[in-house]
Write a protein that binds this DNA or RNA. Sequence first.
DNA 1: CTGTGTTCCTGTTCGC
DNA 2: TGCGAACAGGAACACA
Length: 288
Amino acid sequence: MPELPEVETVRRGLAPAMEGARFLKVEVRQRKLRWPLPKDFEKRLEGQTVEGLGRRAKYLLADLSSGEVLLMHLGMSGSFRIGKDAKPGVYYHERSKSTAHDHVVFHMSNGATVTFNDPRRFGSMKLVPRAKLDAEPLLRALGPEPLGNEFDAAMLAEACAGKKTSLKAALSDQRVVAGLGNIYVCEALFRARLSPKRQASTIADRNGKPNERAKALVEAIRAVLNDAIKAGGSSLRDHRRTDGSLGDFQHNFQVYDREGEPCPHCKGKIKRIVQTGRSTFYCPACQK
DNA sequence: CTGTGTTCCTGTTCGC
DNA sequence: TGCGAACAGGAACACA
């Protein structure tokens, strides 16, 4: 499911329920997530106050009063839901209409109940000492935040210089830029008028300096992410805001999931191809 | 080191 | 309506 805009939407939704609140009780129904939750997971959370809720790429990071950071990843199908005054042991999740995939429940001191639901269990949580966050393997290799100040054409060109692989594969690589997934890579390439099949290194010159394509791509990435965040993310199957409502950005897809439909620019047919095992949608006429 | 394929899961959709 | 196959927004890992 969730790419950067969806995770950011979740972060903004969760912040009022979690920031400044204490974990009164933590219930784990399913420890076997992408990474198994440690046996002392609940104990390390209970009694701690959430000092802040941040995001890095597609990870949520809750800063705890204990000095640890709770790392959370939604995988493909993870979502959080906030309920008020829910009784411990009784969960209801809008999407699945069952409690079967409510794996973790936080009962907060402000009365909020935060439930993590994830049918496919590709998501997970991990506790890391704040002091060791820089050395955390999950975060260590991540590239720049695409909405941060440090991300620019020069940086993207340098990361792509020398890459034999396609632009689609390069932008999907979290080490190049952190937070894009299949949808927003397709959408950004369309906005930049660049073919997903184009060799990644062609956005840089021989010295690794950015060309016009790199500049267009950076602007396209920024714009599509900002637009999607404004819309509360995209809801195809799994993404929900923390109040259960749908994101709206899927209505603004120009190419993603629109195989055979007319290109918004040239009215040619949008094509679907498979690259590195995943669907790519693009307009062969507009994107070069 | 680089690039590609496999794998972890369950749920939904599509073709017959 | 039923049923198996294909596919789904991620990313760690194994391997050539």
